[in-house]
Amino acid sequence: MISVTIIEPSFIIRQGLVSSLSGFRDIEIHKVYDEFDNIEVIIKKIDTDIAILNPSSIDQISLAKLIEKDSEFFSKRIVLFTNFPVGLDLESAVRAVFSYHQSEADIVKGMNKLVAELNTTEEPKEEVLSKREQDILRLIALGKTQKEIADELFISTHTVVSHRKNITRKLGIKTVSGLTVYAILNNLISMGELQ
C-alpha cells in the first residue's frame, strides 16, 4: 500500500484524481488539499509516500526555490500532474510527471510502475521491532529527548529520528503518549519506571 497526498486547486480535476486513484488497490489517498496559498506549509506537512501536485498553480520561481531547498524530497516524493508540458529541468527534479493528455492505459501503467517501485521498500506483513528499535522506544517512553537518546546510545540524532519513524510506521502509533502505552503493554518499561 502506498499513501498519497493530492494538491490540486481545480474541483473537477481533484475529484477526477480522487476517484480514479481510489480505483487502485495499492493506493491510499491520505489528504486532499485544494489550495496553494500556503504551499510551503503544505509541503512541510506531507507525510505520505508521494504527493501529486499541479505545477501550473505555483509560479516557476517559487517552485524552483522549493525544489532547491529540498531536492531529495522532490525527487523522491513529488509527482506532477500537469496540463502543460514541463521543462526537462523540472521533469528530472521530481519522481514522475503525468499529463492531462495521456491515455487511461498510460496513466494506469505509470501509476502501477510507481506503486511497484515504492512497494518494494515495504516490509512483510508481520511488523516486528528490532532490538535497537525496542531500546529507542523504551527511552522515548521514559520521556527522553532525541538528543538524550542519541547521547545514551552513541548514535546521531538523525539516526534516532529515522528509527522513530520506523517505529511509528511499524506500530501505527504516532504520539509519545501512544508509544508509552505500547511500551507498558509489551513490558518494555514498567509502571514503576514512569515517574
Binding site: L171, G172, I173, K174, L185
Partner: peptide, 15 residues
C-alpha cells in the same frame, strides 16, 4: 486527531 488514531490502534491491535 493523532492521538485518536493511536488509541484506535492500541485498542484494536495491542490491548
Amino acid at each position: 486527531e493523532e492521538k485518536l488514531f493511536d488509541l484506535k490502534n492500541i485498542i484494536m491491535k495491542y490491548l
